[in-house]
Structure formats: C-alpha cells, structure tokens
Design a protein around this nucleic acid. Sequence first.
DNA 1: AGCTATTCACGTACAGCGTATGATAATCTT
DNA 2: AAGATTATCATACGCTGTACGTGAATAGCT
Lengths: 262, 262
Amino acid sequence: MSSTGPDPEPPEATPAPDDVPRPPDVVRRLALLWNPPQPSGRGRRARLTLDDVVAAGIAIADAEGLDALSMRKVATRLGVGAMSLYTYVPGRTELLDLMIDRAFAELDLPSPDASWRDGLAQHARQHWELFQRHPWVLQTNMWRLPLTPHVLDAQEAGLRTLVDTALPPRQVVEIVGLVDAFVRGLARASVAESAERDASGMANDEYWTSMSSFWADHFDPERYPTMLRIWNAGGFDVESASLDVPLERLLDSVEMAIERAR
Amino acid sequence: MSSTGPDPEPPEATPAPDDVPRPPDVVRRLALLWNPPQPSGRGRRARLTLDDVVAAGIAIADAEGLDALSMRKVATRLGVGAMSLYTYVPGRTELLDLMIDRAFAELDLPSPDASWRDGLAQHARQHWELFQRHPWVLQTNMWRLPLTPHVLDAQEAGLRTLVDTALPPRQVVEIVGLVDAFVRGLARASVAESAERDASGMANDEYWTSMSSFWADHFDPERYPTMLRIWNAGGFDVESASLDVPLERLLDSVEMAIERAR
DNA sequence: AGCTATTCACGTACAGCGTATGATAATCTT
DNA sequence: AAGATTATCATACGCTGTACGTGAATAGCT
C-alpha cells in the first residue's frame, strides 16, 4: 500500500491514485473537515453554526461519555429538532470526527526550537492532559485517528521533534507511535479510576463494596501469587498511573536509541 | 434515595428503586465468569451450552467485527430465538466479557523457568498473535480489561517474568503495562493494514480511499513538511507495523532499567 | 402414575438509536 | 411579486438491547 522510494509529487503520489474510487461521501466528509462551509447568504438563515453543534457534542461527551452521545440528545441541548443537525453534519460519524479535531485543537504543540527531549515530553504531556479533559477521545475505538487538520498538526509536531536527530525516518515513526500508545494506555488506566467512581454516582461506595467482594469471593492467592506479592508491596497503588516517572524512563530509552543511531 | 442496599431477595419489586441509576451488578457478573453454572439437573434440558453461545459470538466478531455482533445475530446463528440467549448470559456486556476471557485462554503463557527477557518477549508475541486472530478484542473500548480468569492469568504470567528481577514492584507493573500498551498500539496499526488489504470489505478500506482523497485534495506540504519528508523517505511503510524489531528495542530499555535498579 | 417445582424457550413489546424522505417555512435573487 | 434556495423538523423505517409473561419440558416427590 505505501509506496517505497522517494516521490516528489505528493498530491499525485497516492498509491494507486486513479483506480481508487472516491465515493462522494468520503470527499464530502473530508471537505467538511478541511474546508468548512461559509454561509452562502442565500436561502433561510441558519439558527446555529457548525461549531455550535460540535461544541454541544463535546459538552455531552465530556459529561456523560460517548455512549450517551446521540443525535437526538445533541439536538435537544441546542433546542432544535433532531433532523436539523443533518444540515450541519452528514451524520454521527462525521460529528465525531469534528469533535476529535476540535479537541486536538486544544493541544499546545511543542515548539520547533525545543530540544527533541523537551519537545517529545511536551507532546506526551499535552496528549495526557487532553485525555484527562476529554476522556471520550479514548473511547473512540478507531484503528487510526481521523485525518483531521489538528490531529495531523499534532502528528506533524510530534514527528518533528525527532526528525532532525540521527534516527532513520522509520524509527521516528515507530517511536512517536510508541509514545502515543504509551500515553493512551496510561491515560486509560488513570481515567478508569475516576470513571468507575462516577459510575456509581460519586458518593456511593456500593460499587467498591461489590468490587471488594470480588477479591473476597473469587481471588485465588494460589492462582495469582505474583499479583498478591505486588499488591502487598504497594505496586498497584494509584501513583503508578501517573505520567511523569514512566515517561522519563521511556525518554531515556529513546535517548539510547538516538545515541546508538549516531 | 440512594439507600438501595444489596438485596438478596428480589422477588418483591421495591416501590421506586428504578429511578436511581444503580451500578452494574458486578457480583453476579463476576460470578458467571468465575463460577460457571453446573447443569442443575432439574427442569427442562438446555439445547445449548454457555460455551456454544460464547463461541458463536466469537465467530461473528472474528468474521464481521464487533459492530456486527448483536444478540439477534448470535441467536440466529445458533438456530434459536433471540431471548433464549438470556438463559445463558445476563446481557450483551457479559457475553463480551466471556468472549474476551475465552480469547485470552488461547494464550500460550511464558514458562516461569524462562529468563525474564524470553518470558516478556513471549508475553508480548502471544498477545500480538491473539490480536491478529481476534482483532475485535482491540475494538472493545473498555478502560480496562475485564477481571476474568484468563485475563488475570495473562497478567500474572506477565508480571511474574519481572518480579524476581531487581526492579521494584511498582516498576514491574509500569513496565508490563508499557509492553501491553505497546503491543496493542502496534497491533492496531497492523490490523488496520491487513484489514484494508483484504478485499473482504470491512468498512475499513474507507480509510484508504479517504486517505487518497485527502492527499489529492487537501494535503498541504507547507503545513506538514515533516510528514512529507518522512513519507518520501519511506518512513510510513508497512514494515513499521511489524513487531519484532521494535520489541527487541523495547526489551533493551527494560534491560537497562533492570541493570540500573541493581 | 400423577403432581409440582424448576428450568428453558421465546413471542411480543418497548424505548432508544441513526437517518431517509418529504412537507413547510424563511430568506435570498430577480 | 415570483421563483429559487436553504433550513427546520414530523413522520417513519429498520435496527438495537432487553423486560415481561406465557407455555413447554423435565426432575424428584408422593
């Protein structure tokens, strides 16, 4: 799929450029992301903007999670009929794309002048904080992130932190991917704590009592001796879900890779 | 209001317990996983086993992905009415738990006698292959894996590979978590590739058509110079989604951490 | 053998979802 | 004023998970 070798003309450099069908859905979907429509001036005036719709979607997802995000709910929040949303957005999928793009726009991307280590740490930390603010992004179980402007901005900035090191390009991609996967994984664990607490309505500890009943009823110390050891040694404590320490260690290994490549 | 305690006798429906969003019934859900019901002998004989239901769910998810997995479809495949499934499984959530558990049971866990490096490599590779066989596991957008027997077996075995090194317990947890996140991230990318290579459909080659549309219509070389450089240098090629090379590098960094801890 | 308790099977129904269709209302250009 | 263009939204369809309740099958007990 990906072409090997240098290709000077990227707009024409698409693999199998001409025989790949481009259904109008896809074109329109990307057009919405990259060329947001300007009000045409003619016809009835719109009560909302595209941004209103996206913001309402994010508000709901922030508060109640992705599962609770429905078109009808977004419409209700905006004081509008459900089908009215479809004048702004082709469908739920595209709304999610736009929400992700808007979320990624919040990232404070690393400066090109920073060292690779500061830049990559900034990249990781900014994503970490983004996932704390918008945990629903972690719920979007995509194979890959959508091709939206600000998502690509983030990738561009992340890759740029390493592209001028001695690392070969392929390793740059690998390492940035590793850092991203690492941050996502850790953020998942971190968010899980608070999400589980909220699932039972904040002050209600029924969840934890039933949870601890699991340890009492089903946990078999003979089947899981290592987990028991680590648990007793405090290895599963909450701080392990923090970012800083493991990130520094990860950056150490990147540094090692850079020096080896030199 | 929120004083709905655990009630061992639910035949008398309490007057107004339904307006309070109760947490999922964790106890009963886990009981199904840890104490699979033995045939009670009395009453009408079951046409199916729990395992039949789980296997049918996995077959559908393997073939068509998680989105295509519905209770009605599982029932149809088993030649049974939709509601009959609820004799075997409390609901879709629990069915998914059981499917995950059964998938993880396929793992060939590292032997305790292996070196930490061989063991951890085995841990990673086995998960990698599992995700290739059952990509839908990567689609389960849970915060954490469910607390099922075989999932915990895998965690136990992973942690055991490092627990007798010089690493402090918390770092053992961190590193295994890092390896897991790393494998999942890489498997995601790999599965995306093969899914789009398969002409067998999936809605996933849509990504590639949108990719080509994106390159043709919207890619701005001035906005994304680094991506252009890396693309032209072949840095985005498919091989980067292979496991072996980056895994060895990751294990190198673990080795470094161990030696530093000694 | 008959009774009864227990378990399984599943038709029906309901609330929710995404969204296709088409009628209606508002605002532009001419 | 007329026509073109656009936004709004009620209705409806097919899909989902699953609550409810009825009926069928089978076990042990009398």
